[in-house]
């Protein structure tokens, strides 16, 4: 069992869920309630990671992270650190891959809140921020929670992009999924088996959690 890879995966999943929380809430809410020109295109772009193979994103990230790329130079100038072969680079990749997993369930959750409820709150003199925190968030919470759990679990399972841009550095970019692949390649079936079973258990619990929270929402509405 490669504990450092396991911890790294948990850390990556945690950061991804944490950062995508506010992004997903804002984007999901905006997409649910506002209609604007080009909305279909925006939603299609956000859904792209669901259908594209990880290799497509991996390829573009390799270009973006290359030493001569303007993006990498800008990032190095800003932070003094490179993105390629670093944990930060993986977090960035993971954020992009998980956009649909975070935004779509949250958008559905906000769509399910009827305009009457919000109008009623506004009529009662509640300020927008208060409506957001006291009415919208509690109502959308099951959708938000399931989106975050899904994002977390999906990040644990991410493999293709990490393999392409990570460089397999222990403690920096070697995730559990890559470690399992390595163990299989090295004919260490025992090591691969232990790690696979662990990941299987965690993923099952995560999906059960998603089902539990979404089931709760259905009963409440």
């Amino acid at each position: 069992m490669d504990w450092s890879a396991f911890a790294l995966s948990l850390e990556l999943a945690g950061w991804t869920a944490l950062l995508l929380g506010p992004i997903g809430i804002l984007a999901g809410r905006a997409l649910a309630w506002h209609r604007f020109r080009g909305q279909a295109l925006v939603e299609a772009l956000l859904a792209l990671p669901l259908v594209l193979p990880p290799t497509v994103l991996g390829f573009y990230l390799l270009l973006a992270f290359g030493a001569s790329s303007p993006f990498e130079r800008w990032y190095q100038w800003l932070t003094g650190r490179p993105l390629v072969f670093t944990f930060s680079g993986l977090v960035l990749a993971s954020l992009i891959i998980n956009l649909p997993f975070a935004i779509q369930p949250m958008q559905r959750a906000f769509e399910a809140i009827s305009t009457d409820v919000r109008d009623a709150a506004a009529c009662c003199g509640m300020r927008p921020w208060r409506i957001f925190t006291r009415v919208e968030l509690p109502l959308a919470w099951p959708g938000i929670a399931s989106a975050l759990v899904l994002t977390f679990a999906h990040t644990l399972g991410e493999f293709g992009v990490v393999l392409m841009v990570g460089g397999n550095i222990p403690g920096e970019t070697r995730t559990i999924a890559v470690a399992i692949y390595d163990r299989v390649q090295a004919f260490d079936d025992h090591g691969a088996g232990v790690m696979s079973a662990t990941l299987l258990g965690i993923s099952l619990v995560a999906i059960l959690m998603v089902y539990a929270t979404t089931g709760w929402r259905v009963r409440r509405l």
Binding site: L62, F65, G66, A67, V84, F85, M164, G167, N168, I169
Partner: peptide, 20 residues
């Protein structure tokens, strides 16, 4: 300092693309 390619072709890509 090592970055590990999954196979030698990926190592070649890492080594020569300016990333390493």
């Amino acid at each position: 300092k090592l970055v590990l390619g999954e196979n030698v072709a990926q190592a070649a890509q890492f080594a020569t693309s300016g990333s390493a």
